[in-house]
Amino acid sequence: MSRVKVGVIGVGALGRHHARILSEMDGVELVAVADAHAERGREIAAKHGARWVSDYRQLLPDVDAVSVVVPTVAHLSVAADFLRARIPVLVEKPLAHNVEAGQALVDLAERHQTLLQVGHIERFNPAWKSAAPWCREPKYIRAERTSTFTFRSTDIGVVLDLMIHDLDLVLSLANSPIRSVEALGIGVMGDHEDAVQARLVFENGCVADLTASRISPTA
C-alpha cells in the first residue's frame, strides 16, 4: 500500500512536533517542510529525512495532505491554496483569528469537498477519552489552564491560544446551546488578552467557569 505523502508548513515551536510525529507514523511519508526561516527549515527537514522549501506553494504538486502550523493570522491564506487544490488540510488550533476567516475556511472546504480538520489534540487525550463517557449531563464544570509567557502565538490572545482547548471540551460535555457568556480579561504583554476568566451558562442549566492565563509565574 502506498504511503500518504504529507507536508508541514511552519516548523516553529509547534510545527516541529507535527513534523516529528508525521515522520514516525505508519503509512505516512513526510516529503517536505516549508518554512521561511531557512536555518530552522533545513534543520527540521534533515532531522526527518525530508526536503525543505521556503515557499509553501512548492508543496502543492507533491503532497496528499498538509499540516498548517503558521501564525494564526495566516491560516486562511495558506490553507486556502490547498483546499482549492482539493488537498486535505490539518490546521493547528485555533482554526482562524476571527469568525469571518474561520467561516471562509469552512466554506472553502465545503465548496471543494475537501477535508479540513482543526488540531484540537485534547479530544484525543487518553484521560479525556476515559472520563468523558462518565460525564453525562454535568451541572457544573470548572477548567483552569495556565502557563508562563512563552513569547509564541503573540498574534492572538489567550482565549484562542489556550482557553480554546477547554472551550472545545466544555461545549462537547454540556451538549447544549449557550444562554449567556460573562468574561473579564487583561492584557499585559501586548495588544491581546493574556489572562481571562469566563462563565458560560447553557440552556440546559449547566454552568462552566473557565480560567486561562499565559502570564502565570509557574505553569
Rank of each mutant, 00 (worst) to 15 (best):
V91Y: 00
P138D: 04
D64H: 09
A45E: 02
S130A: 15
E92D: 15
D55E: 13
L83M: 06
D107G: 02
P71A: 10
P71S: 09
R142E: 15
S77P: 01
V91A: 09
G49D: 07
V68W: 00
S54V: 11
K47L: 10
L108T: 04
V68G: 07
V69Q: 05
A80P: 00
H120Y: 14
C135A: 11
L95Y: 08
A85S: 12
A65M: 13
R123L: 07
H48Y: 15
P71N: 10
A96Q: 00
V106I: 15
Q117A: 15
A109S: 14
P71K: 07
W52H: 13
D81C: 11
V70D: 05
R145G: 01
T146E: 07
V63T: 06
Y56K: 11
R136L: 10
W128Y: 10
W128D: 07
A45M: 07
E110W: 05
A50W: 01
N125D: 15
I121Q: 10
P133V: 08
V69S: 14
A79K: 01
Y140R: 15
H120N: 15
S77R: 14
R111Y: 00
P133D: 03
E92L: 05
W134F: 12
G49K: 02
F82D: 03
L60D: 00
V73C: 04
F82N: 02
V78I: 03
S130N: 10
T148I: 12
W52E: 03
A109N: 06
A45K: 03
R123P: 00
K139I: 02
K139E: 08
A46R: 13
F82P: 04
Q58Y: 03
A74R: 13
L90C: 11
R57M: 12
A127V: 14
F82M: 09
V91M: 12
E110L: 06
L59H: 02
L60V: 11
P126R: 02
L76D: 10
T146H: 13
H75K: 10
P138G: 06
G119W: 01
A104C: 09
V53K: 08
E100R: 13
S147H: 03
V99I: 10
A143Q: 03
Y56D: 01
